[in-house]
């Protein structure tokens, strides 16, 4: 009986997240279009609202090409790794008090583990495609992801020190419910490092060199077509949502808000996640791309020392005040 409720919850969560992913692509195109003083998709449905469905149907029916010299099992397996790891990390995110699928004591570490595994999908896709530029894209993406995992983790150590636990629900509870007690304010440096590392982990502009459309012909996903391509994109958007959720939980106070919404406790959580997604899209419309060596220099020479400084200052603060 309990298994049945868990399965039902998983199904509802999956359906909601996949719908969000589809409409995240739609809103990204619309918002970037309006920021560039043009309209986005307008033709399919009223103001283009059915565009994601049309895209989904198109991906379904496209021919599935596997290159002849490609490593077939790895080629077929790579998008699955990306998607599965990203979907698994949804299981530990609390959307409201008690609204979490698996309330484990190492929630934050679990999300790290899953995001470091997602990069496997990238590098295997690059390798298995057996093509020069794809492979380069995969290598670059992998190097970028493992370089930025460190500042990501270290920026959250400050939050762990302030809240005293890795359990995501405990982190939100220890932030209290007022505006000024969010961990954003004591951890401003940590938030900045987290935000930049988050952009790099999810391969978004300004760090999207691996999938740069103008340079590597869409990088490690060049040889993929149809549904597998759609799987990679789903994995990227789910990664964006998971990272936004972690940012909301750790720095912005999770599901707490000014007033209680009666029937829908995750209201403020979802609003904050939407705010993060808007930030992602806004930055994509504004900034140019970092060159590869600038990217690596930024990760190792700027963000890592900043994150360590943040840990040091937080530790100092905790010792002196308590």
């Amino acid at each position: 009986m309990q298994i049945l409720t868990i399965v039902l919850q998983i199904a509802i969560l999956l359906a909601i997240v996949l719908l969000h992913v589809a409409y995240a692509t739609y809103f990204e195109r619309k918002i970037i279009g309006h920021m560039q003083v043009r309209l986005g998709p307008m033709m399919v449905g009223y103001h283009g609202l059915l565009q994601p469905i049309a895209d989904g149907i198109k991906s379904f029916f496209k021919e599935d090409i596997v290159p002849e010299q490609a490593d077939r099992p790895l080629f077929l397996f790579a998008p699955v790794i990306c998607l599965v790891t990203m979907l698994t990390s949804l299981a530990v995110i609390p959307f409201a008090k008690g609204w979490v699928l698996a309330d484990i004591n190492i929630g934050l570490l679990f999300i790290f583990a899953m995001s470091s595994l997602a990069s496997y999908g990238v590098i295997l896709a690059g390798w298995a495609s057996n093509s020069k530029y794809t492979f380069l894209g995969g290598l670059r993406s992998m190097a970028q992801v493992i370089s930025y995992e460190l500042p990501l983790g270290l920026s959250l150590v400050g939050v762990m020190m302030l809240s005293g636990s890795l359990n995501l629900t405990t982190i939100v509870d220890s932030q209290g419910s007022s505006f000024s007690s969010m961990y954003l304010f004591p951890q401003l440096i940590g938030f900045f490092v987290f935000f930049v590392a988050m952009l790099a982990e999810t391969n978004r502009v300004p760090f999207d060199l691996p999938e740069a459309e103008t340079e590597l012909v869409s990088g490690y996903i060049t040889e993929y077509s149809g549904m597998r391509y759609a799987l990679f994109f789903m994995a990227e958007y789910i990664g964006m949502m998971v990272m936004s959720s972690i940012g909301t939980i750790c720095f912005l106070g999770g599901w707490n808000g000014p007033f209680e919404v009666p029937f829908f406790p995750p209201f403020w959580f979802i609003l904050k996640v939407y705010g993060f997604l808007f930030l992602f899209i806004w930055i994509r419309a504004t900034l140019p791309r970092y060159r590869y060596d600038q990217l690596m220099a930024l990760g190792w020479k700027l963000l890592l020392p900043l994150a360590l400084l943040n840990i040091f200052l937080t530790g100092l603060f905790k010792i002196l005040v308590h």
């Binding site: 570490l109 583990a113 470091s116 595994l117 496997y120 493992i146 995992e149």
Partner: peptide, 8 residues
């Protein structure tokens, strides 16, 4: 184990 061994 997953983060360090399998992931790095």
């Amino acid at each position: 184990q997953i983060i360090v061994y399998a992931g790095a």
